[in-house]
Amino acid sequence: MSQTRVHNFALSLDGFATGEPQSLEAPFGHAGHRLHEWFFATRQFSADGAHGIDDAFAQRWAPGIGAEIMGANKFGPPGWQDDLGWRGWWGERPPFGTPVFVLTHRPRPPLELDGTTFHFLSASPDEVLAAARDAGGGLDVRIGGGPSVVRDFLLADLIDHLHVVQVPILLGRGVRLWDGLEGLEERFAVEATTSPSGVTHLVFNRKVHGG
């Protein structure tokens, strides 16, 4: 069976994956782009970016992925459901290149863009994962965020591979990932890799039975 993966998911030292308040002008709230500066410096993001530890992790985002699942707050700013013309943050050619399933309490017809089709549905984690696996043709499914969606899939024990990037900043407020996940590490083999950029890559791989 295909795996369920999370990649390049950046967190502050105090566990926040986004700041507040989120808006069209500030997608990550008061966090700005500070959680993602490590990624912007990689070759994966830009042809002018650098190779190295961060780039090696960043490049694992795409291979083997057949579909993505994301939450409503990743697809657009608060209130985007009221704007039938909203087509996501990424323009007419989104970077996904796969079917994308957007979890929202207000479903709408699919949106077809260049190389990516967005499907909007209200469903439980296991239901949307089944739909994504079917659409992904047996390849892996990426859980793209935000933190509430990743937390829900972790609580449902549906994630096989989790790559978290701990960024050395303190946000103090926003949306946290780890709340309610005490003892999560017992289900995973955990590896940590530090980078010259100052971030730490934490990789959680589901333990095999008996591991």
Rank of each mutant, 00 (worst) to 15 (best):
Q3N: 15
R5V: 15
V6E: 05
V6A: 02
H7G: 11
N8L: 09
N8M: 09
A10Q: 04
A10L: 05
L13T: 13
D14G: 01
T18D: 13
G19V: 09
P21C: 03
Q22R: 14
E25N: 02
A31I: 07
G32Y: 12
G32D: 07
H33L: 12
H36C: 06
E37D: 08
F39Q: 06
F40S: 14
F40Q: 13
A41W: 14
T42N: 14
Q44T: 14
S46G: 12
D48M: 03
G49I: 00
A50E: 14
I53M: 03
D54N: 10
A56I: 05
F57I: 09
F57K: 07
Q59L: 13
Q59Y: 11
R60S: 13
R60Y: 13
A62T: 14
A62N: 08
A62Y: 03
G64P: 03
G66N: 04
G66E: 08
A67Q: 06
A67V: 11
K74Y: 05
K74P: 05
F75T: 07
P77E: 07
P78F: 08
P78Y: 09
L84W: 10
W86G: 00
W89V: 05
W89T: 03
G91Y: 10
E92G: 11
E92M: 10
G97M: 05
G97I: 06
V100F: 03
V100K: 00
V102G: 07
T104Y: 05
H105N: 09
R108T: 07
P110E: 01
E112A: 11
G115C: 01
G115T: 00
T116R: 08
T117E: 10
F118S: 12
L121V: 10
S124T: 15
S124G: 12
P125C: 06
P125S: 08
D126F: 01
E127L: 01
E127Y: 00
V128C: 07
V128T: 12
L129Y: 10
L129D: 13
A131E: 15
A131G: 08
A132L: 04
R133G: 09
D134G: 08
G138I: 03
D140R: 13
V141M: 07
G146Y: 06
G146N: 09
P147F: 03
P147Q: 08
S148L: 00
V149L: 02
L154P: 03
A156H: 09
D157H: 08
I159W: 01
H161I: 10
H163N: 11
H163P: 01
V164K: 07
V165P: 11
Q166H: 11
V167G: 05
V167K: 06
I169C: 06
I169W: 11
R173Y: 05
L177Y: 04
L177R: 01
L177H: 01
L177K: 00
W178C: 01
W178I: 05
D179I: 02
L181G: 10
E182P: 05
G183R: 13
E185Y: 09
E185R: 08
E186Q: 07
E186I: 02
F188P: 02
F188D: 02
A189G: 10
A189V: 10
V190W: 01
E191P: 00
A192E: 15
T193H: 09
T194Q: 15
P196Y: 15
V199G: 11
V199R: 06
T200I: 14
L202R: 13
V203M: 03
V203F: 04
V203E: 14
N205P: 04
H209F: 04
H209L: 07
G210L: 04
